[in-house]
Amino acid sequence: MTNPRPADAARTPELISPVRTIGHRTFDFSRQVAVMAIVNRTPDSFYDRGSTFGLDAAVAAALAAIADGAEMVDIGGAPFAPGPEISVRAEIDRVVPVIEAVRAASDVVISVDTFQPEVAFASIHAGADLINDTTGLRNPDMVDVLANSSAGVVITHSLAEPRRPFARPQYSDVVAEVAAFLTERIDVALAAGVSAERILIDPGHDLNKNTLHSLELTRRFAEIADLGYPALAAVSNKDFIGETLDRERGGRMHGSLAAAVVAIVNGARILRMHNVGPAVEAARMTEAILGFRQPARLRHNMGETND
C-alpha cells in the first residue's frame, strides 16, 4: 500500500520542528492532528457546569477521554471567564490530585490550564507535560517557571485580566492582531530560554472576541498556523458556535466538529474538545481526506466482486 499524497488543498504550514516529543508521546504535526480532552475541576465552567468538579468524577472523565482516543488531557482548576477569585492553594488542590491519578494510569500528555505560576510549578512537579496559559505568558514569573523546566507551553491570545470582564472587544484586523500578539509572546519565551520545540500556540477563540471575530479566526486560521508553531484550535461548544447556529450549550457538538475540521484544513494540529470520541473520528477522517494517513481498511471495490 503506497503512502497517500497530501491533497493540494491541504494546509501544511512550515513548522518549526514538526516532530515533537511531549512528555512520553511523540507527534508528527506535519501529518497528524492530536485531540486534547477537557477536564475542568471547577463548579462554574461554561460547558460542564461542575459535573467533573469532584475528584473521582474528574479522574474518571480523563480516563474515559483517553479510552475514546484523546492523546492529551487538559486539566483546569480556575476558569479564565469572569467570576470570583480562586486562591492559588485552592487551584493546586483541585488540579494536582487529578494529575497524579492520571499520570499513574496513563502516558497521555497532561496539560494544565492555568495562568498562575505557582500552580504551573506544582503541576509540572506532579507530572504535567504542558502548561496552557490563557493569558499568553503575561506574568513574567510564569515564563521563569517554564524556562526552568522541561514542560511545553500553549501560548494563548487574550486581552483581559483573568476572571475580569472585558466589554465590547474591538479589533481593526483580529487575525493580524492576534498573530502579532502571539509573535511577541513567543519572542519573550524564547528570550527567557524556552526552546522553540516546546512552544504551541492558540488564537483564543471567544477569549475577548465576539462571534464575528471567532468566525474570522476560524476562516483565516492558516495565518496563525503560518507562524510556524503547532497551532491549537479551542472551538469546542463555544458561544460563537451557539450564536451562529442558535444552539444552547448542549446542542453545539455538530457545529464544533465543523469548526474543528475547517481549522484542521487551515493548519490546526491540536483540537481542544469536550466530545472526544466524535472529535477523534472527525480528526482521523480529515487526516485521511488530506492524505495524511491511510484508511483503517480497504475493501470496498478492491476485489473481483463489488462489496
Rank of each mutant, 00 (worst) to 15 (best):
V145Y: 05
S195I: 09
L137H: 10
P165E: 14
S150H: 09
I38A: 11
A37Q: 04
L15P: 08
M253W: 00
V102I: 11
M36C: 14
V96G: 15
A279Y: 04
E304A: 09
S172M: 11
H24Q: 02
A283P: 02
D307T: 08
D113T: 02
L290C: 06
N139S: 13
G291H: 07
A283Q: 00
G76F: 01
V178P: 15
A180K: 03
V19R: 10
E243P: 03
A196T: 09
L232N: 03
S51N: 12
T286G: 11
A122W: 05
A268H: 07
T12W: 00
L137C: 09
N139W: 02
D226G: 15
G242Q: 05
S149R: 13
Y47S: 12
A167F: 11
R89H: 03
A258P: 02
R198C: 07
T156S: 08
G204R: 13
F166Y: 12
E304W: 03
S149V: 11
P43N: 08
A60I: 02
A180H: 10
V235H: 04
H274G: 06
E161L: 14
A258Q: 10
L182R: 13
E100N: 09
A192M: 00
E184C: 04
A60D: 15
N275F: 04
V265H: 06
A81K: 03
R25H: 07
I289T: 10
M36P: 12
F240H: 09
M273F: 02
F292S: 01
A9I: 01
A126R: 12
D56E: 14
R25Y: 06
A296S: 13
N266L: 00
Q32V: 09
V109A: 11
V143Q: 07
V175N: 10
A9F: 07
V261A: 14
V175M: 11
M285C: 11
R164S: 14
A70H: 01
L232Q: 05
A233F: 08
V235Q: 08
A260V: 10
I86W: 01
E118S: 12
T21W: 09
V102A: 10
M302I: 05
